[in-house]
């Protein structure tokens, strides 16, 4: 087993990111201490295929109580790979999001938009042998938040991945192409490198679009790669 390359801080936002106000009291104020990546960081949890149940990958069906969820049905495809382009098989991908009206099922969300009795907005899937994943859902709506006057989050889906090791853990958000709110959203913009933050925007795909059923989006995810040399300990 080899260790993982260090996190590329140029591809991520800083801990304290003044545009996103909650970071001011919550981000560590001191630089993280570099440590040599070893056995611990090279290992990580493996999930049995049974961790994902039959409807977990279909958010249009897994929260139904009395009908179909409202909104624009979409299918999201993506490949999980590392920075060397190696596909990452059997990776658990957990997703959650707002409904089409921009409302989360979460009890704390008090946005004045309707809940959908047929949409919970959470699910999960696993990558196949080639690193590909897919899930069905409803396109999430934008919603206001309290960061500054007239602040609105762009449409987004939250994704959580463990990757091949604990060191490659990633929680991110997938955005949609052409969303005018992106250029106003500090959570998106605090990733300083414009090339890096473009990687957060999915691509519309007519090839993945299902005739008469759902619009297709492609969202590839890149995790840290491994060092070429084996670990010393």
């Amino acid at each position: 087993m080899s260790t993982f390359k260090p996190r590329d801080w140029g591809s991520h936002a800083p801990f304290i990111a003044p545009g996103y106000k909650s970071t001011l009291l919550r981000g560590p104020s001191r630089l993280p201490l570099a440590i040599k990546s070893g056995l611990t960081e090279g290992t990580g949890p493996r999930f049995a295929p049974a961790s994902v149940r039959k409807l977990d990958f279909d958010l249009t069906k897994n929260g139904v109580t009395n009908g179909e969820p409202l909104g624009e049905r979409i299918v999201v495809h993506g490949k999980v790979m590392d920075t060397d382009g190696r596909p990452q098989p059997n990776i658990l991908v957990e997703v959650w999001q707002a409904n089409a009206a921009g409302r989360y099922v979460h009890k704390v969300d008090q946005h004045n938009a309707p809940l959908d009795p047929n949409f919970r907005g959470s699910g999960r899937c696993m990558t196949d042998a080639d690193g590909n994943y897919m899930f069905y859902t409803i396109k999430p709506g934008a919603y206001p938040w309290g960061n500054h006057f007239n602040a609105w989050r762009p449409n987004h889906i939250h994704l959580s991945l463990f990757g091949p090791g604990f060191a490659t853990r990633l929680v991110t958000q997938m955005y949609f192409p052409g969303d005018p709110l992106l250029e106003l959203d500090p959570i998106f913009l605090e990733t300083q490198d414009p090339v890096a933050r473009e990687r957060l925007i999915s691509k519309f795909s007519i090839e993945k679009t299902e005739e008469g059923f759902a619009l297709g989006y492609q969202f590839d995810i890149v995790l840290r790669g491994r060092n070429a040399t084996p670990m010393e300990d």
Binding site: D8, H12, Y104, V171, R199, I221
Partner: peptide, 12 residues
């Protein structure tokens, strides 16, 4: 390939 940036887990 460049790493996919991390984003907040958010409140929900």
């Amino acid at each position: 390939y460049g790493e996919t940036p991390s984003q907040t887990v958010g409140p929900y």
